[in-house]
Design a protein around this nucleic acid. Structure first.
Length: 119
RNA sequence: CGAGUCGGCAGGACGGUCGCUGUCCGCAGCAAUGCGGAGAGAGGAAAGUCCGGGCUCCUUCGGAUCACGGUGGUGGAUAACGUCCACCGUCCAAGCGCGAUCUUCGGAUCGUCGCGAGGAUAGGGAAAGUGCAACAGAAAGUAUACCGCCAUCGGAAAGGAUGAAGGAUGAAGGAUGAAGGAUGAACAUCUUGGUUCAUCCUUCAUCCUUCAUCCUUCAUCCUUCCGACGGUAAGGGUGAAACGGCGGGGUAAGAGCCCACCAGCAGCCGGGUGACCGGCUGGCUCGGCAAACCCCACCGGGAGCAAGGCCACGUAGGGAAGCAGGACUGAUCCGAUCCGUUACGACUUCCGGGUAGGCCGCUGGAGCGCCGGAGCAAUUCGGCGCCUAGAUAAAUGACCGUCGCGAGGUCCCUUAGCUCUCCCUCUCUCCUUCGCGGGAAAGGGUUGGGGUGAAGGGGCUUCGGACAAAACCCGGCUUACACGCCGGCUUGCGAA
RNA sequence: GCGGGUGUAGCUCAGUGGUAGAGCGUCACGUUGCCAACGUGAAUGUCGUGGGUUCAAGCCCCAUCACCCGCU
């Protein structure tokens, strides 16, 4: 199912702190993705768009794009991670740009997280 | 049809698929929640946070004075406002009128002039006080006196005028004298003649008078210069601004010193609820800035939904202070003083520590729409109908279809106009005929057809669609804004 | 949500309503064999923007824009 509900989001300050303190991120020209493994069996996503990106309309636009992209691509992504998405520039991407970014960035992030924890 | 300006309206429509957040119903579940269905889901500014309220809490909220902050024409509207409406005053002002000057008679230019569409306006008080005004200027505010103008006094020397005296020169006249000459008369006679007198003429001298010119002295007046003491504010020039303006009288020169008109002030009368307006009378004159301090009037207790309340979790139920004194403590400005009232012992405040999860507040309201009444309007009253977001790392998104709007491209249609051609008809000329008629050529009109075709309409296609998103809720203000629409005023072109 | 501040030359900042300044930097000249330093001189401003008050505004008032800071 292509859904995206409250329990699929990072919502508390402690959750955000935990992910940032793992200090593991990947990025391309559109996105920066921070990541951390969790034990829930599904992924959660947090969005952080600062005021430097633009006014409220522009920031909402970014967040909706990220949500929609995650909703569309989550079936193909590895599950069981807490992710935080940040914009790289104030230029607005298209939906396909964000989808491509997610489908390439999240697997590399997962690879970088898993072997380290095993070793 | 277009331009400018001011104001207002509006801020795409319908539908499908996949998602998100509430509400209601049903089912499952102890519950959390899940599934299905129905229905709802950003704005005119939601923005900036510049004002005003509701609501909530604060033992200090009541009253007075002070401080601080705000507001400022009048009347009304409103829960309230710094908002809105109407009106008043002031300023700007297209245009019109009036007057003056010029004129090529078309008009142009000017104005202490009048009216004035429309626009702007934080617009109480400057005779309560303090203060400010660079530069320039004599002087920048109880006016002063630089230049100038004027009176008086004194001085200087020069000039002018007048008068007097004296002198000189010249001219004219008169008088006297002398000389000479002429004429006449008388006398004398020795004389080629003489003497005397009178008159006239000429010359000279002297004196007098008059006139002219010059010189000297004196007096008076005028002009010029200097000084003193005054008068004056008309003029000069500076400035953003100079103690009413303009004209006439008046004066030594001037001045509201006097007069008319205008502006301003005061009083009275009339109109208006009022700001204010109009008229009359009076005595004659008291600048600007208060978005400088200030004065006056009015308003304001403070904090803010992270207000505030409840539940769960959790910690060291730890420490300090306070309780009838107007104390102490504390702080995002809960100001100071005085008076009054009043709560508290299971309380209040602070330090330290803990938790930062959920629920309520939380969306039905100064609400929206329609109709009718009152009012110039803002607004208000009555009736009927409607329910219209409630998120919280923060919901309204993605994809698509049909239509609509704007701009561009392209094709088609209609028509004014232009042009070509043919038919018909009219006018005129020529030929023929007795004439009717016929023929040729030119010009005009009209209908049909072909071409072109401004503007308009339609089809297809491409692109575009702003500014900006609730965060307790309302009333305003301000600012941003694509394509549009409507109205007031001014103006340009065209047509009637 | 509540409150405060700043904006002036390329940079850092002064600036009683009356001609916009200082330091550093820039440029030119001098000095030097050359450079630095030094000396002399010069240029440089929509005072964030738009209105208003005033004779006159960088300064006063209003609105607005951008940036910074504090509290909860």
């Amino acid at each position: 199912m292509l859904t995206f509900r409250k329990q699929d989001r990072l919502r508390s300050s402690t959750d955000f702190k935990r992910v940032y303190e793992r200090k593991c991120s990947v990025s391309n020209q559109w996105l920066i993705v921070y990541g951390l493994a969790n034990e829930l069996g599904h992924s959660r996503v947090g969005l952080s768009v600062s005021r430097k990106i633009g006014n409220a309309v522009a920031r909402n636009r970014f967040k909706r794009l990220y949500r929609e992209a995650f909703r569309a691509t989550r079936a193909e992504l590895p599950a069981g991670y807490d992710l935080i998405l940040l914009p790289r520039s104030s230029k607005e991407p298209t939906l396909d740009d964000v989808k491509d970014a997610l489908s390439t960035l999240v697997p590399t992030l997962a690879r970088r997280l898993t072997p380290k924890e095993k070793s």
